[in-house]
């Protein structure tokens, strides 16, 4: 009966739950789902990670390639994140070129990494003006159940944290490149940005870590990126206006969550 009711009146179904101070999956309003991370599952990639928040799953694989740098930044490498929202992960997505949503997600992840200055692109330089590393970070969502930005960032950061790059010998005169794959050095990551998503409903009701169902019915979305004591992103693309108190409340919650996620990632990488 409940499932028919949900299909016919999705908004009312959710509202009935919220009126009882509980969410459809049994969580309290400000409770997050459990997160888990697995590092190094894909042996073909230079580093990889699988990040799960509840049933939302994102797989990240990083492939490092050598290329010539841009002329205006001769000592900087490249980091190219690409979020793929395949038709497998949700009925919302269709096969074909990347949707607007996927493009915006890729852009957000790229922005967050640049803003947090978690990685120094000059560390990717092998030989100035001649040779740099390009990190292709493919983020593939295989289960889309809300808070995908959080999962993408988690997967990417975990993969970057466990990334090792082989030693490269480059002869600038002859242009000969010798890659020694047996001697790999860990890539330095300066910080660990963690993003947290909130859904906002009528009358300033805040739901932490929304599922897809909650996200699609929400009146607004708020995404906070915390990095240590500082913030490196506050994204709220429209939606219902929020008060100052709500912002402070979400800030406080996301700080606690960021500490937890950071521990989870660090534990997974050291093991």
């Amino acid at each position: 009966m409940a499932s028919q009711y949900k299909t016919i009146h999705p908004v009312k179904y959710l509202r009935d739950y919220l009126a009882q101070d509980i969410r459809p999956d049994g969580r309290e309003f400000l409770r997050f789902r459990s997160a888990s991370v697995n590092v190094g599952a894909i042996s073909q990639a230079d580093s990889s990670a699988i990040f799960k928040i509840g049933s939302t799953t994102v797989v990240c694989g990083i492939k490092a390639e050598l290329a010539a740098p841009k002329a205006d930044t001769p000592n900087c490498g490249y980091l190219i994140p690409n979020v793929e929202l395949s038709p497998l992960c949700s009925p919302k997505f269709r096969p074909g070129p990347p949707s607007d949503q996927a493009q915006v997600a890729s852009k957000t992840i790229d922005d967050i990494l640049i803003n947090s200055s978690a990685l120094d692109l000059t560390d990717l330089c092998v030989c100035i003006d001649k040779l740099v590393w390009v990190l292709y970070c493919d983020l593939i969502c295989i289960d889309y159940d809300g808070s995908v930005t959080d999962a993408c960032l988690g997967a990417l950061v975990a993969a970057l944290k466990s990334l090792t790059l082989p030693e490269v010998q480059h002869n600038p005169e002859t242009g000969a490149i010798v890659v020694d794959t047996s001697d790999r050095k860990p890539f330095p990551l300066k910080s660990l940005p963690v993003s947290t998503t909130f859904a906002i409903f009528d009358e300033q009701l805040l739901l932490a870590d929304p599922t897809d169902e909650e996200e699609s019915l929400a009146k607004g979305k708020l995404c906070l990126v915390i990095d240590g004591p500082e913030l490196c992103g506050l994204y709220k693309p429209g939606g219902i206006p929020i008060s100052q108190e709500l912002l402070s409340k979400s800030l406080e919650k996301s700080k606690k969550r960021a500490d937890l996620i950071r521990k989870v990632i660090e534990a997974a990488v050291t093991n």
Partner: peptide
């Protein structure tokens, strides 16, 4: 920042760079 005209609540927000809570 984007504010609405009645209570001046925050509608949209976009940031670049690192900042502290006080700065925000």
């Amino acid at each position: 920042y984007v504010f609405e005209g009645i209570k001046k609540d925050l509608v949209s927000c976009h940031t670049t760079g690192r900042f502290s809570e006080n700065e925000l």
